[in-house]
Amino acid sequence: MTESREQNEMIMDGLREIGTIGAAHASTALSELVHKDIMIEVSDCFVCSTQELPTAFSTTEETVVAVFLEAIGKSRGGIMLVVSQKMAIELTDLVLGREYDENHCFDEMDADAICEIGNICASAYLNAVSRFTNITMMPSPPGVAVDMLRAILQFPAALVEADSDSSVVIKTMFKYGKNVGFGFMLYIPDRESQLVLIEKFGSM
């Protein structure tokens, strides 16, 4: 997405808009799932090049939980939700109806629960993208990884590299109960969706 600055701004606005719509849908779906209010807000959104992806985050040694889904349809892509381990457990506590336990380790049940959360967020986001681009995309079954952020980010970086050169990083804020936590959604459009997005937002 190497367009002029002005055009870039417009594209960013468009992507932020998609992110906000996706987040709103995800909030509703998640709140319904756990019967508690979960608010998801977009606090920042930027486009990042492939090689920078593993270095675009400051705390890359931290262990994080990531859910990755492939977008399947007329156009392809990848989508990933990244949250800290603590926040992942807090979120899965809500889904599984568990009390918060400081000594709880991330286990199989949590992995399944966080996959579901990732699935909901990804579907909501892809839906929002589809509505703008008129390209229908469905998320694949989710996969989960618990590892160093740096190691995890190499995967989408390599995917992006194979088929496209930039990915959209959406910093999202989750508000649930008394807790507030930050997470990231990464949307990696393939070349085709990228061009459609540029065309849509660049000429608005």
Binding site: T55, T60, E61, M148, L149, A151, I152, Q154
Partner: peptide
């Protein structure tokens, strides 16, 4: 050694790759 790079050294230098995932 960053992602997508390589370094060459004379002993006794040491080199590190941080967080090799699929790399």
């Amino acid at each position: 050694v960053g992602v997508g790079e390589y370094h060459v050294v004379h002993a006794p230098e040491k080199l590190v790759c941080l967080g090799l995932g699929s790399c």
